[in-house]
Amino acid sequence: MTRAVAGTLLGLAGLTAGSAQAQSSVTIYGRVDAGVDYQSNVATSGGGSGSLWRASGNQWGTSMIGFKGTEDLGGGLSAFFLLESGFDATKGSTNGSALFNRRSYVGLAGSAGSLKLGKNLFIDNDVWFLDPTGQQFIGTATLVRGRNWQGADNVIEYQTPTWGGFNATVQTSLGEQAGSLTKKRKDGISLVYANQTVELRAIYDVVRDANGRFVDVFDTSKELILGGTLTIDKLKLFAGYENLRAPDAAPTSSDKANHYWVGANYQVTPALTLIGSVFRVNVNKGGGNANLFMAGANYSLSKRTLLYVGAGTVRNSSNANFSVEATNNNPLPGQNQNGAYAGISHSF
């Protein structure tokens, strides 16, 4: 081989390597979660109540499959995308009719922060960081009937860089209604300060109905969440407060709710974590109040597979019918309810 030919081949190899490095990287990821679930005192269509045994597909965490990728555009700028769909492993069905029912967005990231366009979880899902259970079915979503557990279509989202532990995210979900900028629109902001020991969060968001109003305290309302965590060696403490307001609700309907919680995670061994938490909600205008108690444990068999168990009880006031889990399996007004689930979660 001549030196000229060798030089040409080496040059082509260098160009090929540079081209390969600039190409997008794509990752397939997901989680499959399934188990068994029990709830007592579930109201029946005949006006009575009974126990419910069922398979559990999302009680510990949503089963999901996703695709994500990035491309280095040079100069510190990168492009990225994410496609993610949640499903019920016990039935093989998706959580909703959309192909990618959790996230489907594209964006750019650089020294000035990141911009996302598409579909995403709504900004109040950041309550996950304040939830001692990690947003299990017995967790922060339970006593607010899933208000802080929504998705968002038509999203424009900007996240700042992190400066000295501080970070901010702003999000709008366009309602796409002709002649109106507010009908069916969602907006929110999330602020966080975090270091190795302390994490503090503040979230404020609004969800409007088809008329651009706030008429249902647990659906279309204004929401404020404040809370934090403190990590001391193997112990992590949690505390949070959530206020919901629906100023346009009917005069006889509840228009305010206050939700409080405290909890802890304790890592007994590298594989075993114990969970304990207490939640309380107060709803005005006869909406009643409830106390929710939860205890659970996660045991990791490996980096990808864990066993989990969770149990709880909700104690309702005479006119409240909150469920022990974030489901529609409510008891009759004034009845208490117990629940428990156990299963396996495998991530890939």
Rank of each mutant, 00 (worst) to 15 (best):
G179Q: 06
A79K: 10
L121M: 11
A152W: 01
F100D: 04
I138F: 01
T133F: 05
I138R: 01
R145Y: 09
W163L: 15
D88M: 02
Q171F: 03
G179R: 09
K186H: 13
D126N: 15
D131K: 09
A141R: 13
G110C: 11
D153P: 06
G113D: 08
N125Y: 10
F81Q: 07
L181I: 09
T142E: 10
Q159D: 03
T70Y: 09
A168T: 15
V155Y: 02
R145N: 13
G175W: 04
A89R: 01
S93H: 09
T70G: 08
L174H: 06
R147M: 10
Q177T: 15
D124I: 00
F80I: 09
S111G: 10
N95R: 07
Y105G: 04
A79L: 07
F87I: 06
L181D: 13
G69H: 08
W163N: 05
L77Q: 15
T172D: 09
L117W: 06
V155R: 01
N101H: 11
A141L: 08
N120T: 02
G151D: 06
Q136N: 09
F166H: 05
Q171W: 05
Q171M: 15
K184M: 14
Q136Y: 00
R103Q: 15
G175E: 14
R147W: 00
A89I: 11
L73C: 09
T90R: 01
S180F: 12
L99I: 10
Q136K: 14
T90V: 03
L117M: 13
F166N: 07
T94N: 12
I138L: 10
G164R: 08
L73H: 11
T172I: 13
N125T: 14
D88G: 03
R185I: 05
G175T: 11
V127E: 08
R147C: 00
R185H: 09
G110N: 12
L174N: 13
L117R: 08
F100E: 07
K119V: 02
G69P: 03
Q171T: 04
A168R: 05
P132Y: 11
T162Q: 14
P161E: 06
P132L: 12
E84P: 01
T162Y: 12
G107H: 05
S180L: 06
R147I: 02
K91D: 14
A152P: 04
D88W: 00
N120R: 02
A89W: 02
G113K: 07
F166P: 03
T182D: 14
K91H: 06
L181M: 12
V127I: 15
Q150N: 13
G164I: 10
G76E: 07
L83N: 01
G92E: 07
L130R: 10
R185K: 13
I156S: 12
E71I: 02
K91F: 01
Q171A: 04
T169C: 06
N148G: 01
R103D: 01
L143A: 06
S97K: 14
L82I: 03
P161K: 04
P161H: 02
D131Y: 07
Y105A: 07
K186T: 11
F129S: 14
V144L: 10
G110H: 08
K91S: 15
F122H: 11
G74S: 05
T182K: 14
K184W: 08
S97W: 00
L143E: 08
